[in-house]
């Protein structure tokens, strides 16, 4: 019984820890802008200063923010797609084939996962402006791919090692063509892994800030995190806290949706690196 109570308390603590700041930003997003700039309603909840959906409406009316959402979605999806395709090829080779240089590939991936992103900012900016990739979608997609590949390769390799590849041969023996065997047997087994890698990759791209602020300069390619940090409210001298909170909530909705639907897969993917495949 004592243990049970301890556990319930533990669960409650975990939930408070994880959700309190989220609740805070949500509460802030419903406070009126005037109350926030005067500091007249300093409590946690928007009691005297409830502003309804007006902050959300204002944020949504901001064209730069809508562009940023579009940029983030587009850039993140494209880099996720490309990264996962390339990583699938590599992970298949690492998990199933013997070839020279396998260790080297894994070491490169490990090195890149540890790479200090900021040290690339200056040379990449210089390079991008020379070849015309500065402030464009591809200019962000390329670095996102490089930095998500290690994670994607690890996750996929771990998943692929668990696939009983003999089943493919067994299916072929049973008369299936090799394409059929691949499609009917291997694809369903590999799909969850690929999917998990895609989600983790998407999270990385969605979260990136350093490349976002250094390799863009307008809404042509500026992603959400950078747009948030430059967000300008009606009062040019103060960070519009409640507007920013509303913008932050909007930027978090896709994450929450993905988490709600795919929580199991994400946990499996995150832990696959630590658990031996």
């Amino acid at each position: 019984m004592k243990r049970k109570i301890g556990l319930v308390v533990g669960v409650a603590l975990v939930l408070v820890w994880c959700l309190l700041p989220v609740a805070w930003i949500l509460a802030l997003s419903f406070k009126s802008q005037a109350a926030v700039s005067n500091g007249s309603d300093p409590g946690f909840l928007p009691l005297d200063s409830f502003a309804g959906w007006s902050n959300y409406a204002d944020v949504w009316a901001d064209e730069q923010f809508r562009r940023a959402i579009l940029n983030s979605i587009g850039i993140s999806l494209i880099s996720t797609l490309l990264s996962v395709i390339i990583a699938t090829l590599a992970a298949y080779a690492i998990a199933r084939l013997e070839f020279r240089g396998k260790k080297a590939v894994l070491s490169v991936a490990l090195a890149i996962a540890m790479f200090p992103v900021v040290s690339l900012v200056s040379p990449l900016f210089d390079l991008w402006r020379t070849i015309g990739l500065y402030d464009t979608w591809p200019g962000l997609i390329l670095p996102y791919m490089s930095f998500t590949l290690p994670l994607a390769i690890w996750t996929l390799t771990a998943f692929f090692r668990e696939i009983p590849w003999e089943m493919e041969q067994a299916a072929q023996v049973d008369g299936a063509t090799s394409w059929q065997a691949f499609r009917k047997v291997i694809v369903p087994l590999a799909a969850p892994g690929v999917f998990t890698a895609a989600i983790l990759t998407f999270f990385f791209a969605w979260n990136d800030f350093v490349f976002g602020i250094t390799l863009t300069s307008t809404e042509a390619a500026r992603p959400i995190p950078a747009a948030l940090s430059f967000f300008v409210g009606p009062d040019p001298f103060q960070r519009p806290a409640s507007l920013l909170a509303a913008a932050a909530v909007i930027a978090t909705i896709p994450i929450v949706l993905i988490v709600l639907v795919f929580q199991r897969k994400i946990v499996a993917g995150l832990t696959s690196g630590a658990v031996k495949g």
Binding site: V14, P21, L228, T252
Partner: peptide, 23 residues
């Protein structure tokens, strides 16, 4: 629990920074 614990993981660092700065 799984959902809750994944939200901080998935949230944009910049958003976390703002949330705590305002807090």
């Amino acid at each position: 629990i799984r959902t809750s614990i994944l939200i901080p993981y998935g949230i944009i660092t910049v958003v976390s920074g703002f949330a705590w700065q305002f807090a």
